[in-house]
Design a protein around this nucleic acid. Structure first.
Length: 198
DNA sequence: CCATTAACGCGAG
DNA sequence: CTCGCGTTAATGG
């Protein structure tokens, strides 16, 4: 995990249990806490003018949630919403700043994590700027697989619904369905029990 | 709730 | 003009 739990607790972090689909913060809110996921997944999203959802990140256990806002003086550009029931650690901003100041090694880890998120943004922006849905979906799939332990062919099961894939790639769910079936024909992926295996 | 299909409009190439 | 994506609606899992 990004910051050891004991360290967060030592600086006064609280443990929170969240329901599925619960909002942690909304776009426009002022950041007041550092959040780290102990269990469950959280998405960062944004609703565009026609109400279509764009998912900007899916964060797994061990990761922090939009910590970059604690380093700059801006409001949240995204909403943070749980996928399932989650346990998180919450540390007030001032305590977080103190923790980072007093633990330079943690600061390095945060740099690394921040860099990884930024790298992800580059990759997704490159993928999603393609007009071709197969390119967008392939890029998204390859990237998510790269973070799993399953590197052999067809051993990684994507833990996302078609709608979530659509929200990550800014496509419509029907286009995702059509394109995924095409990619199956091309032997890029397999569909087992309706789930995408790559 | 999630996935799939079909018919059709419409814009980009 | 053609092709493919988004839309809508219906159906199945």
């Amino acid at each position: 995990m990004l910051i050891p739990e004991e360290l967060l607790l030592a600086y006064g972090a609280d443990t929170e249990i969240l329901d599925p689909h619960q909002t942690i913060f909304n776009e426009g809110d002022t950041p007041k806490y550092y959040y780290q996921i102990v269990e469950g997944r959280i998405k960062l999203n944004h609703y565009n003018d026609d109400g279509k959802e764009l998912i900007l990140a899916i964060l797994d256990k061990g990761l922090s949630v939009c910590e970059l806002l604690l380093f700059i003086d801006k409001t949240y550009p995204v909403n943070a919403i749980t996928f399932e029931k989650c346990t998180i650690l919450q540390l007030p901003k001032s305590s977080f700043v103190k923790l980072v100041d007093e633990n330079p090694n943690i600061s390095k880890d945060i740099n690394k994590f921040l860099s990884e998120r930024l790298y992800y943004k580059y990759i997704m922006l490159e993928n999603n700027s393609s007009l071709r849905p197969d390119i967008r979906i392939k890029g998204m799939l390859s990237y998510h697989k790269s973070f799993s332990e399953h590197q052999d062919r067809f051993t990684y099961e994507l833990p996302l619904t078609r709608q979530q894939v659509a929200s990550l790639t800014a496509l419509r769910v029907e286009t995702v369905v059509r394109t995924v079936k095409k990619l199956e024909k091309e032997n890029f992926l397999k569909i087992i029990n309706r789930k995408i295996h790559i």
